[in-house]
Simulated scan of single mutants.
Amino acid sequence: MANPTYHLGTLGPALYALQAGSAVVVQRTWSPAAFAELADRYAADSVMLSPDRLTALVTAGRAPRRPFRVVFHGGAACPPGLKRAAIELFGPVLHEYYGTSKSVLTEITTAEWLRKPGSVGRPLPGIRVDVTRDGRSLPPGETGEIGIRLRAADRRPSEAPVHATGDVGFLDADGYLFVIGRAGTPQELRTARLEHDVRLLPGVTDAVVLGAEAPSCYVEHGTGAPFPDPVPAIEASARLHGLPAPRIVLAAAGSLPRTPSGKIRRAGLEGPAGAGEQGPG
């Protein structure tokens, strides 16, 4: 366990491992070098990593000498560029999951993800995912609010069978789920779509867009290879979604503030950004 284990997204895999009779090693102080050393010392078969930990390991090029059998990751969106780099580092062993405090909802293997880049997978057996807008189920490819019908074992008898996740996204024709961002007003949805588009750009390891009237776009990018200027693509995407040209701030991968589960801490970016540089430098 490379993450703090008091958040369900990171604690869950440790609890599952303990319940299955496995030992769990928790890293007290994070660093890529210490992580690789611990994994080799205890001959770890699997690991749970949030995207910020994946970013740090990819940037440092650190992986244990003894390959993992499985690398679980979740807790925050994982941009395709980062995930491809992580697959190159660890091998085709990444296993991503998406869920809420109620339950893990979807999972996707490396082989599936390479066919469906950006997806968080298909629902687990017994769980139904529905994408709706104004109470109407949407066809594949259309973005709406993500709702789930949980298994009876995952909810109290007094709870409604359908649970709103608070996220927006879409299902493709094969039933794979793509999560765009958080639900909100139509203007916030446009902002979420822009943020999703930015994460798909080459070289981007993570991104956050704040505000809709005067959006600010914070873009983390890798430092080990030439980084294509993202400004024209970001401005074009903003126009497509009916947003004004955003203020764009570039930052090195892993340099923006994070929550314990690995998400970029949006509240820490509301003022002027000092973490990165303006423009395509």
Rank of each mutant, 00 (worst) to 15 (best):
G254K: 06
P280L: 05
A238K: 04
L243Y: 03
G61D: 10
G276A: 07
I234N: 05
V26A: 08
F178Y: 15
G118E: 03
A183T: 11
R151P: 13
T100S: 15
E213T: 15
A36G: 04
Q278V: 13
A275C: 06
F72R: 05
G175C: 10
T100E: 06
P67Q: 01
Y42D: 08
D45V: 07
A20P: 04
D130R: 13
G274Q: 11
P244Q: 06
S237A: 15
G274Y: 00
A236L: 13
L54C: 07
G211E: 13
D206M: 10
V104H: 00
L38P: 00
E96R: 11
G211N: 05
R156D: 11
A238R: 03
G211R: 08
D40Q: 07
P123T: 14
P32C: 08
P51R: 07
Y16I: 15
R199E: 04
A236I: 12
E277F: 11
A253Q: 04
G75I: 03
D167I: 15
R84F: 04
V168P: 11
G126S: 10
Y98T: 03
T191E: 10
L201W: 03
R182M: 10
V198R: 00
D130N: 06
R41I: 14
P272E: 12
I264M: 05
A207S: 14
A39P: 01
R133M: 09
S255L: 12
T100W: 05
R115E: 13
S31G: 01
G9A: 15
R247A: 09
A160F: 09
V120S: 00
G254M: 13
R193W: 07
A111T: 14
P244C: 12
V179E: 03
S158R: 08
T29S: 08
E88K: 10
H241C: 11
G141D: 05
V249P: 01
A56K: 03
R128P: 09
E107W: 06
L200N: 12
R122Y: 01
T100Y: 03
G126Q: 06
E213C: 11
P67G: 03
A43I: 07
R133S: 14
A207K: 05
A76Y: 00
P51Y: 00
V71M: 05
P92L: 14
A214G: 02
E145M: 11
V249D: 01
R149F: 12
S46E: 10
F35K: 00
A275T: 02
T223C: 08
I87T: 09
P157M: 12
I108R: 03
A36L: 07
L200D: 12
A152F: 03
R115G: 10
G271H: 06
I180T: 14
G254T: 12
R193V: 10
P67Y: 01
R156S: 14
R122W: 05
T10D: 07
L49A: 09
D45P: 02
P13Q: 02
L82Q: 02
P125Q: 02
